[in-house]
Design a protein around this nucleic acid. Sequence first.
DNA 1: TTCCCGTACT
DNA 2: AGTACAGGAA
Length: 224
Amino acid sequence: MYDCQDRFKVLPLAEGVEEVFTRLLNYFGPQHWWPGDTPLEIIVGAILTQGVNWSNVEKAIKNLKQEDLLEVKGLYQVNESKLARLIRPTGYYNMKAKKIKAFINFLCEKYDGQLDKMFTQPLSKLRSQLLDVYGIGPETADSILLYAGGYPVFVIDAYTKRIFSRLGYVSPDIKYHDLQQKITGSFPEDVDKYNEYHALLVALGNNKCKKTNPECGYCPLNKD
DNA sequence: TTCCCGTACT
DNA sequence: AGTACAGGAA
């Protein structure tokens, strides 16, 4: 099994969650997420990054910026096929163009095209509204809420599942909501910490705790 | 479960 | 050439 289990099996989940955060922050340093200049850019990025590397997203974001399309009005007016062409580097570009359009339409209909208005809504109400938008599932909704809206929501992703299952705390196929409850149930509700924690898990998942050939020998969760 | 789909790293 | 990737819909 994985080396990290030896250390973390003696720690209750609550302490383990805290220990992982401390170690990752010491090792990687603050990540300064999300990499996006505006709330709208963060939301578009959250949709574009579904199922692909962030490096793919950067090209698409650059294309959108060049066309002056990272604003509500522009995204509302641009036709879907042109949008799809611009975001081609992210893969799934036809689906994602539809998804971005669906969000913009939702924003315009419900909130007069104003993100400020949208983000005055209480957390649980807005979350369920976002989940009703085509193309927005739990992870994308929570990324939008945390990184664009500043709500205290802990984002779960493939890395989070992989890391906590390898630590021995949960099953690899644990459901999104169940893992979210497990982690937040024993962790202070703090926007800055949630922000940093998710970013650090992505860093570990990318650099050390990879799906195949994980570099456990160099993992900060194993050192003394 | 399968489809959507390009990019980077092995 | 093969695999993995900040997922979600049908």
